[in-house]
């Protein structure tokens, strides 16, 4: 190993904890979810149970909301990775179906609105 090798290993060793802390630090129960289909985003409340059908690039994806949690229920993609992601509940939890270009992100109250009127 050369000196440059050690430096890059050190860099990686510092980068990983930084990424975990910066991306995963907040985790509370989310109140809404942002569902992105292509370049359109819709916000749905996790307060009410329901089932959404979203037409993605490949076909319909079914997303379920139940007891404050959200998940991909069916998807026309091959890998079904989105379905294996399971139920999402904490703010920041995220699942994506790249082939069908649909993603789900759980959000807390704060980022849902750009401004509050009272």
């Amino acid at each position: 190993m050369t000196r440059a090798d050690y430096l890059i290993v050190l860099f990686a060793a510092l980068l990983l904890p930084y990424l975990y802390v910066s991306q995963w630090s907040s985790s509370e129960v989310g109140t809404t979810a942002a569902i992105m289909n292509g370049d359109k985003t819709i916000a749905v409340s996790l307060a009410h149970d329901h089932t959404l059908t979203i037409d993605g690039a490949l076909g319909p994806t079914i997303i379920k909301i139940e007891a404050g949690k959200i998940r991909f229920a069916t998807s026309p993609c091959l890998g079904k990775q989105c379905i294996h992601s399971g139920w999402l509940q904490q703010t920041g939890e995220f699942a994506a179906c790249l082939p069908n270009r649909i993603s789900v992100a759980v959000l807390g109250d704060a980022p849902r609105f750009d401004s509050i009127n009272f």
Binding site: A12, L16, L19, D39, T41, G92, F94, L98, R101, S103
Partner: peptide
């Protein structure tokens, strides 16, 4: 494909795998 900030939640895992 997924221009959503939530995607960054996956970056730590993916980077760990990469390392």
């Amino acid at each position: 494909f997924i221009p959503h900030e939530g995607l960054f939640k996956l970056l730590p895992l993916l980077m760990t795998a990469a390392v």
